[in-house]
């Protein structure tokens, strides 16, 4: 009996996620982007298991700035380190931190926004004023200051600093949606049924805004990858022994490297561009899908 009821559920009411995925597959460009992302992610995470990070980042003075060859597919940098290996590990690190920052800032921003929108009134007023203050801060500079001041510096602390200044956008978006959603009768009905505010927020209201959340988080992922590589480029991201895509690009701040040794920075530049573009493609396609679904619903 259990089995056939489950079947009814599945054929009759696809979840918002599966609707979004179906729309995504119809969109050629987005599908290609998604496949590209999955391949890249699988490739770098898989391959980095076999690569020895310590060995790759060890300085080898006999192989400084070597152009691409059989031994080093993409040559070496000023420390004689294999660029290809750094590219693989760097992509992995950039992706990982992008995802981590997106999740941390997303979860905090969603909670903040949904609380603000759901309770409204004075709570909302106070919370929104705080966001207004955060929005006008020159956040890039402040992140740099915090990064340079943190003594115990790790992936987690780096992500937390970045997330601390990138949760406002999603919080605002979720807040305005929650503000609309709580006025709908189903949320009001839950109140009269004795459901607690916590359950109304997380079990009734949130499921109705999942597609917005998925779309926003995807687009945020793209900008966080960009932000991380930008910080690493300026020298305020990972230390050199933990390469990211931005680290490879930062070598191009040396005019000699930029002018004569394209193999060090160009692959990383292209890879960042492709990654950000693909993530955006997927995000935009999801957004279109979500909109269409709302029109139909």
């Amino acid at each position: 009996m259990e089995a056939d009821t489950v079947e009814i559920v599945e054929q009759k009411s696809p979840s918002s996620l599966s609707i979004l995925l179906r729309e995504l597959i119809r969109d050629k460009l987005a599908l290609i982007s998604l496949i590209f992302l999955i391949l890249i992610a699988g490739f770098v995470f898989g391959l980095s298991l076999f690569l020895d990070q310590a060995e790759i980042v060890t300085v080898d003075l006999f192989a400084i700035n070597a152009p691409p060859s059989d031994q080093f597919i993409l040559g070496t940098d000023y420390g004689g380190r294999d660029v290809f290996g750094q590219l693989i590990i760097g992509t992995r690190n950039s992706l990982a931190i992008g995802i981590l920052v997106t999740l941390i800032s997303g979860i905090f921003g969603i909670a903040y926004g949904v609380v603000s929108g759901y309770f409204g009134g004075h709570v909302d007023n106070a919370l929104m004023r705080i966001i207004d203050f955060f929005m006008v801060l020159p956040f890039l500079l402040i992140i740099i200051v915090f990064v340079s001041m943190t003594s115990n510096y790790s992936i987690v602390s780096f992500s937390l600093i970045m997330a601390a200044f990138s949760w406002m956008g999603i919080a605002r978006l979720i807040r305005s949606k929650a503000l609309q959603e709580k006025e709908l009768d189903y949320a009001q009905a839950s109140k009269t049924l004795g459901t607690s505010n916590f359950n109304i927020i997380f079990k009734q209201v949130l499921p109705n805004i999942t597609s917005l959340i998925i779309v926003t988080m995807t687009l945020n992922l793209a900008s966080n990858i960009g932000l991380e590589s930008g910080l690493s480029f300026l020298g305020f991201g990972f230390p050199e022994d933990t390469p990211s895509l931005g680290t490879l690009l930062s070598y191009a701040r040396n005019p000699q490297t930029l002018e004569f040794r394209w193999w060090i920075w160009a692959p990383a530049a292209i890879l960042i561009l492709l990654l950000m573009l693909s993530v955006r493609n997927v995000g935009e396609a999801l957004r279109r899908a979500a909109d269409a679904r709302q029109r139909r619903g």
């Binding site: 918002s16 709908l184 189903y186 009001q188 009905a189 009734q204 499921p207 109705n208």
Partner: peptide, 11 residues
């Protein structure tokens, strides 16, 4: 509630 379309959570 008045509106049977919005008073039941669509999800």
């Amino acid at each position: 509630f008045q509106d049977p379309y919005s008073s039941l959570n669509p999800r």
